[in-house]
């Protein structure tokens, strides 16, 4: 690894300075992330497993958990297909407007989730949206229904797969693909047998990160869901509702489950990543 060689070459003096920096960083992260995160776990288990038993036997909560998983999985599938495809186009092909598209694809990362929700309502809202009334007349309700929640989730997680796959595609280059073409493989065979295996890790990171982001989306989903109990309510909305209704145990338990999945996703990525860079 590159950094160990640097460390080995760095002069041994100035140990105190190094220790001060290390202490500052550790303390900062401890107070900002580690300790609060630990307390959520402790609060969730404050009554032993009672809080968990309570939420897992509440049909509204289990329905919300199921809905969260379904929405996240659908959103991840859409974003993976779209993300890998658009990454191939951005890296391998030239077309007018490529630079603008490349920049705009990052937009969802810097747009407020509330603005995302508002934007979707303005277009797909059943009452005065641009397309909403027409779609609803044809029987498709989007806002205050699951399709809108999927769209909001897809929107906020859109760039994650692309940002992981594009650098890998650039790094791999197109020589292997050319070799496959010269050996008689058509475009699809080349993609499936050569390109996909070589960008596999990038796609997996992207999927894991998208999954974490999709499971945890709150603001955008809140705006478009209407938050109908037992119908369009997701896990993150349950946390808010439980907390505001003074069911802190339920809020902490649900939050703990969500945090567990998020941390597991990060650990999966951090365990996989060095393996590939070896």
């Amino acid at each position: 690894m590159a950094d160990s060689s640097i460390a080995a070459r760095t002069p041994v003096g100035r140990r105190p300075a190094r220790h001060v920096l290390r202490a500052v960083v550790v303390a900062y992260l401890f107070f900002l992330v580690a300790w609060p995160l630990y307390l959520v776990g402790r609060n969730a288990f404050a009554d032993g497993l009672a809080s968990f038993r309570a939420i897992l036997t509440d049909p509204d909560v289990t329905h919300a958990l199921q809905l969260t998983v379904v929405i996240a999985v659908v959103a991840v599938v859409i974003n993976t297909v779209f993300g890998v495809g658009i990454s191939m186009l951005l890296v391998r092909y030239d077309f007018p407007g490529k630079r603008a598209l490349n920049a705009l694809l990052d937009m969802p990362l810097s747009v407020s989730p509330i603005v995302v929700g508002l934007a979707l309502i303005l277009v797909y809202g059943g009452r005065d949206g641009w397309f909403g009334p027409t779609l609803e007349a044809a029987g498709f309700q989007i806002i205050f229904a699951v399709p809108g929640m999927v769209m909001a989730t897809v929107f906020v997680a859109l760039p994650l797969v692309i940002r992981e796959v594009v650098p890998v595609l650039q790094e791999v280059g197109d020589e292997q693909e050319q070799a496959a073409r010269s050996l008689g493989a058509n475009a699809w065979q080349t993609f499936r047998r050569i390109t996909l295996p070589s960008i596999k890790w990038g796609v997996i990171y992207g999927v894991v990160l998208s999954l974490a982001r999709s499971l945890g989306e709150f603001g955008a989903v809140k705006v478009v869901s209407g938050n109908v109990l037992g119908d369009t309510r997701t896990a993150t909305l349950v946390v808010e509702e439980k907390y505001l209704n003074f069911d802190k145990g339920g809020a902490y338990a649900t939050a703990f489950l969500l945090a567990l999945v998020a941390v597991a996703c990060i650990i999966v990525v951090s365990v996989l990543r060095p393996k590939e860079e070896r």
Binding site: Q178, R181, N186
Partner: peptide, 9 residues
């Protein structure tokens, strides 16, 4: 296209 030329590269 390259895959129909039967060349080795």
């Amino acid at each position: 296209p390259p895959q129909q030329r039967n060349v080795g590269f």
